[in-house]
């Protein structure tokens, strides 16, 4: 095999690894929130083994990126791709961490009677999930337009988080015995908001990868 072919195959493998990791993170979020919303604790059993896989990929992806930088001295689009992969790698690992947090809180919440039917939290989860999915698609296809439209959706998630907080605050004020459950739910919504933030970071990295333009910290 020629060195050039080996290199382009390695770039392909790297992309595939990031995608696999993203898919796992996505599934972990989905399982955690569904378990909570549908009060189905069995769904949570899959989350832990997935976290182990994600952690493994987290290390492997960084190692592979560093190796390619050291051995191939990538430039131009290849360099931006590898830099993006390293950063996206970090965001995906954090997303998986947040999913594990949500799973833990779900476990706690499932052991007590429900505080209220959940509407906004599953809604938040759907948007965060879509954002993550779009971010990964944008990464795979180098689709900066999709990344750009996805970033905007972060505001919806932020608004829902505030809404969840306000609503649960009224519960806690009217009945202090709801505080432990309400707090868990507030932390779940915060986790989802963080997941959307990480998906936004991924989108920003995709835009950098495609255009070579850094769009971070340019909001109002």
């Amino acid at each position: 095999m020629t060195a050039a072919r080996h290199y382009s195959e390695a770039l392909g493998t790297l992309k595939e690894m990031v995608l696999r990791m993203g898919g796992l993170a996505e599934q972990m979020v989905h399982l955690s929130v569904t378990a909570l919303a549908e009060r189905n604790g069995e769904l949570l059993t899959g989350v832990r083994p997935m976290e182990t896989q994600v952690n493994r990929l987290h290390v492997d992806i960084d190692e592979m990126c560093l190796e390619m930088i050291a051995l191939r001295q990538p430039a131009g689009g290849d360099l931006r791709f590898i830099a993006a992969a390293m950063k996206i790698n970090t965001d995906l690992e954090r997303i998986a961490d947040q999913a594990v947090n949500i799973a833990r809180r779900a476990e706690t919440l499932l052991s007590v009677p429900p505080l209220k039917p959940l509407i906004d939290i599953p809604h938040m989860a759907r948007i965060a999930d879509e954002m993550l999915k779009n971010a990964l698609d944008a990464f795979v296809d180098g689709d900066d337009a999709l990344a750009t439209t996805t970033i905007v959706r972060d505001d919806e998630v932020d608004q829902l988080k505030d809404q969840v907080f306000r609503e649960l605050l009224t519960y806690m004020m009217s009945d202090p015995t709801t505080i432990p459950r309400a707090m868990e739910l507030i932390l779940v919504s915060r986790g989802l908001e963080r997941i959307a933030d990480h998906a936004t970071n991924v989108c920003e990295d995709v835009i950098f990868m495609v255009q070579g333009k850094d769009v971070r910290h340019q909001g109002p």
Partner: peptide
């Protein structure tokens, strides 16, 4: 030039393609 060249031919050259 080495992170984000403007011309496609430069990009091909620096990435070894």
């Amino acid at each position: 030039i080495f992170t984000n060249p403007s011309d496609k031919r430069t990009e091909e050259y620096i990435t070894g393609r």
